[in-house]
């Protein structure tokens, strides 16, 4: 079990904890992401990174930050799960990469970059992964329309006689 007060002692008092159903979550500032996750991995045995994702809070009433990046951790020996949430804001939406801790983070971080435009410093190969390389928007941001901006129609037409 991770004890909140221990974490607060080590990484400052800005760490908050909350529960919903069986999910246990801690909110941490962006500055301590790498040291805190390192300590969670090495000292508390969270040896598996289940998921990294992000949420865009643009249209969420009462939200104070633009994005948050969400890490799902799992301790394989005890089966304990922990959700770590980190607020990120524009214009410099950058977090340190956790690739050095878990190699599974590689593609997850690339996907967050591709879909939300949150970049990860120290990632070895941060390229677009799902969208074409020349795509210039971030589709899962709330200000990008569901039906796109016409990119899906931007192709040459091949006719019968032309082929």
């Amino acid at each position: 079990m991770v004890c909140l007060s221990e974490l607060q002692q080590k990484f400052g008092a800005k760490i908050a904890e909350s529960h919903f159903r069986d999910n246990r979550r801690i909110d941490i500032p962006a500055a301590v992401v790498l040291p805190l996750l390192t300590s969670l991995k090495t000292e508390y045995g969270f040896n598996m990174l289940v998921d990294i994702t992000a949420v865009d809070w643009l249209e969420y009433e009462g939200a104070t930050d633009r994005f948050s990046v969400v890490y799902q951790l799992l301790n394989l020996d005890t089966g304990e799960r922990l959700t770590v949430r980190v607020p990120v804001n524009l214009p410099d939406a950058v977090l340190p990469s956790v690739y050095s801790l878990w190699r599974g983070a590689d593609w997850m971080e690339r996907e967050v970059w591709d879909m939300f435009g949150i970049s990860f410093s120290g990632h070895p190969d941060l390229r677009r992964i799902l969208m074409p390389e020349e795509f210039d928007a971030f589709p899962l941001r709330k200000d990008y329309p569901l039906k796109g901006r016409g990119e899906r129609h931007n192709f040459p037409v091949i006719t019968r006689s032309g082929s």
Binding site: P139, L146, K147, G148, R149, R152
Partner: peptide
């Protein structure tokens, strides 16, 4: 799939 990525 009437979305940004799928050709209609």
């Amino acid at each position: 799939f009437d979305t940004y990525a799928v050709v209609q």
